[in-house]
Design a protein around this nucleic acid. Structure first.
Lengths: 334, 334
DNA sequence: GTGAAAGCGCTAACAG
DNA sequence: CTGTTAGCGCTTTCAC
């Protein structure tokens, strides 16, 4: 910057003004400075400028989600990235893999990098640590799951309502023996969805079949096989997550029962419509969730200090075939 | 930091030494400083420390790929993230969407943020701009596609070889009328794969059927429909990319010809094995590519100045059914 | 409108 | 082993 000032024959401060696009500079000087900048291939050092600046923005936000490799998370990331780009902001990403320690570590790391704000899908049971770990006035927006112990906006799907919808759909098609296959119960969305499932069964006094703690599609496949191997197996499955749904599809295929047992899955997934039968799902809208989270975060960064908001994103039932299979006569009669 | 020094009753420099884990400090003082750090909830300002430090590392790398929402890119990102985590490095991500201008913008932005290095899947036809846009000594590793106009390591799949393998496979199953459906021809991988296709056909003097410029699964679906609507249609399809393969599957399904026309796709994709018939693919290994790219980048960051290397990652043919369909008698006789 | 001086939070160099 | 001084590249404050 010194070199630029010397080359252009102006003071340091003038260069600073030009680089920052301040309007109170003589056009002649602006031109001279720009020429010098181009000639010397000068680029201002963001770190140094942030040091003295009043508004210490880095133009970076952090996004901490379960796994960037999962299609749901990836779509969310993409939506956040698009919203950030529109604002000239960049995104630091991290996958948490349901590990509370990783959540803390990454929060700390992004805080140190002076992210202007964070979007977090909590993995741990408590976010109280944010109060001390984060510099004051760093806004956090929670997505997918609500936080405990820290106030912030949250963008949530209506999980319980979606689950109820799924189960009622199966009931409407004649099913009375409906199983729920879920992920770890410490995950909030698992509990919400299970709750919706139980509520729907409860109104008719139906008996629940539940298996949870399913962390992979392989685990879900094994669980489905054992469930259907029982003497009086369920006639329909409600799966609590995309990976679990896929595991269940594999099991049904393997057993040759894919045209026999009904299936509704939470989360849409690519190619669900091309399977045989196509898979009925409760679709979340990760793109809408990402956009909403980014919008909320930017409002906070811009100084909004209203009470924390809770933004609810609706789910949609997409009937494709697997959820509209009726129970077989054998099951009905037994 | 001043406060910490005062509270601990030591000099600024001593605090600096403790915070940086230097060993040449009296344990008594270390303890006092740590206590003060904890009491004041002090965290050192990374930007400021980078300013004066000799080795100006930010502990951040940039990853620029086509689209974080695509399963291939997402798996690559995940692999890079894992490798970076093992080193305490964080990842800035950006999606390029085949837009050369976005490529330049993001490179510039990440350079300004002083990324220690970049992993780039080039979107534009020329990367000469890197020489001026990037601070000197910022290593760049290219992934998926080689760069033009700038020297750097590259991690590439053996695209042409994989494509030849696919087409020979179809030939071995009796096909003589084999079509290629590809993405934009300005994309290097499209050209490589097309080249492999043409070579394989060439050895037998077979006639090519080519359609390219297919940017979406919808476009691929339409192209497949028109191709199969011809009077003497191809009996087999080789699709150049995951999205195109999916479009082709949709078209074959829609026409009821999924058990009739053979299909081999480049890129594996989730659920390919659950479709009816399951889809034969040439699988790339995005995880291996991400790991290799990260490893190469970190070696460069650590000072390796050898000649640029080209790392080649093999592809694998996974026969699942769709690629093993034989041409119908009608086609054979015609 | 423009410039000189001070200082953001930290570390390098050197002295003790 | 510890402290002092200077200065990284930039923006602020406040005179001109």
């Amino acid at each position: 910057m010194n070199d630029v000032a010397r080359t252009a024959g102006v003071s340091l401060k003038t260069v600073s003004r030009v680089v920052n696009g301040e309007t109170t500079v003589d056009p002649t000087l602006v031109a001279r400075v720009r020429a010098a900048v181009a000639a010397l291939n000068y680029r201002r050092h963001l770190g140094a400028s942030m040091l003295r600046r009043r508004d210490r923005r880095t133009g970076t936000i952090g996004l901490l989600i379960e796994d960037v490799g999962n299609p749901f998370s990836a779509a969310l990331l993409r939506a956040v990235e698009d919203a950030a780009r529109a604002r000239g902001v960049h995104v630091l990403t991290g996958s948490l893999d349901e590990d509370p320690e990783r959540e803390r570590d990454l929060v700390r790391a992004f805080a140190r990098r002076h992210a202007d704000g964070l979007i977090l899908a909590p993995a741990g049971p408590d976010q109280g640590y944010l109060a001390t770990e984060l510099p004051p006035d760093t806004p956090v927006v929670f997505v997918e799951r609500a936080a405990t112990g820290f106030a912030g906006d949250s963008v949530l799907a209506r999980d319980a309502a979606g689950a109820m919808r799924a189960v009622r759909h199966l009931i409407a098609y004649g099913h009375r023996r409906i199983a729920f296959l879920g992920d770890l119960p410490q995950i909030q969305t698992t509990r919400e969805r299970r709750q919706g499932y139980l509520s729907a069964l409860g109104t008719l006094g139906l008996r629940p079949f539940m298996i949870d703690g399913l962390r992979s599609s392989q685990a879900a496949e094994a669980a489905t096989r054992s469930l259907l191997g029982r003497t009086r197996p369920p006639t329909a499955l409600f799966t609590g997550r995309n990976l679990i749904t896929i595991g269940a599809v594999r099991a049904l295929r393997g057993l040759g029962r894919h045209r026999d047992a009904a299936l509704v899955g939470f989360d849409d997934f690519p190619l669900a419509d091309l399977l045989e039968p196509a898979v009925t799902v409760i679709a979340q809208d990760p793109t809408a969730m990402g956009h909403a989270a980014a919008r909320a975060l930017f409002e906070r960064i811009d100084g909004d200090t209203e009470e924390p908001r809770e933004i609810s994103i609706a789910t949609t039932l997409i009937p494709r075939g697997s959820g509209e299979l009726r129970p077989r006569v054998r099951a009905r009669g037994s």
